[in-house]
């Protein structure tokens, strides 16, 4: 078994992450700490990182409100942070 990097698409742009990384970790590794906006426009990203707070959510492969901190990257995974499903 190796850790061949996995490529996912975030808002259409490719990001490489180590196999086994969570989507949140992949985003954080690029230096990005906010990828969601609340209804009032406040930036949010990960907070609890254990799947409890739902701050880190994004639409993943068409499914909305997915917690990126407990979702493992898969080749070709489509992540969209636009907010609207």
């Amino acid at each position: 078994m190796t850790d061949a990097p996995v490529e996912i698409l975030v808002d259409g742009r490719p990001i490489r992450a180590p196999a086994g990384a969570s989507v949140a970790a992949a985003l954080l590794a690029t230096g990005r700490r906010a990828w969601r906006t609340t209804p009032s426009g406040a930036p949010r990203g990960a907070f609890c990182a254990i799947g409890v707070c739902f701050d880190c959510t994004a639409t993943v492969d068409g499914l909305p409100e997915v917690r990126t901190c407990v979702t493992t990257v898969a080749p070709g995974m489509r992540v969209s942070t636009g907010g609207d499903p």
């Binding site: 990384a21 970790a25 590794a29 990960a46 907070f47 990182a49 901190c69």
Partner: peptide
């Protein structure tokens, strides 16, 4: 962004060797 539960920092370290 940048405020984390300490357990989050620990989880990211243990699992992904990452500091946010």
């Amino acid at each position: 962004p940048g405020v984390y539960a300490a357990g989050a920092v620990q989880a990211l370290l243990k699992e992904h060797d990452l500091v946010p």
